[in-house]
Amino acid sequence: MWDTFILNPMINALLMLYDFLGNNFVLAIAVFTILIRLLTLPLNLRQQRSSMKMQEMQPQIQAIQKKYKDNPQKMQEEFQKIGYNPAESLAGCLPLLIQMPILIGLYRAIIIVLGSTPQSLFELTARVYDYINLTDLLPISNKFLWLNLAQPDPLFVLPVLVFGTMFLQQKLMTPATKKQESKGKKQQDDNPMAGMTQSMQWTMPIMFGFFSLQFQAGLSIYFVLSNIIGIGQGYYMRRSMAQLKEEQATKKPAVIKAESETAVASPPQQSKQDDAALDAAMKGTPEERKQYQPRKRTSKRKRRRR
């Protein structure tokens, strides 16, 4: 099942691209990466939009969670009122889940296609479709610049590139948070989702940077190219979101102004006044609900100073 639907098609696609692109395996990986990114583009865009939407709704979500922590049914009702569906946030992970088999498949496909051992070449023969003339394609060229594509990069260039491009991609694909706008670290701590997203900006690139020390160079090249495409995609999303906000600002200046002046609040520290405000907001018109933002949290240190 796995071999028939994931691994073998990948192996054959790589071989066909290698054949069409003048027996250049790096070019084959590059075109393959673009194809994979194109295939997953709708899902990626959906995930990004969903992520940005969630980010903006966080203050309301936290306030509702805090207020109705002992009444899940009521909590769900309130979530529905503001248009939040927890299942939708899980669906946002779908592109990542879909990419996992692709990554694992590609990892295996590169190992098998580069045929670094007799057994892997033997395995390849059984996986190649009849219309591909493997005899003519062999041996697969495994040299590119200083790299042996079947081995890790000995000069550390690819691990650094994997880290750098993945970091940039994560940064661009993450919605701009209030922290970035107001420079308040506390606010990041107050919003767990934003905090986690910020942490992932570092965690994922560091992890994959380490992994690239042991990955075959061919796989690291895939990561670098995929990240570069992701950077372009992130840049595009940022611009389109900014344009959207601008349009909204022109249409509803009062609403947008209120939103920009209100910072992200912390549910655990919310006062009863916040709860009252939430009640009022929930009872009010949809416009009023949208304008609702919990009160800014006051730190202990500030309270002591007062």
């Binding site: 007799p118 890790p152 042991q214």
Partner: peptide
């Protein structure tokens, strides 16, 4: 710890 690509062969 050197968890690297396993190269199997006969």
């Amino acid at each position: 710890c050197g968890v690297q690509t396993a190269n199997t062969n006969w």
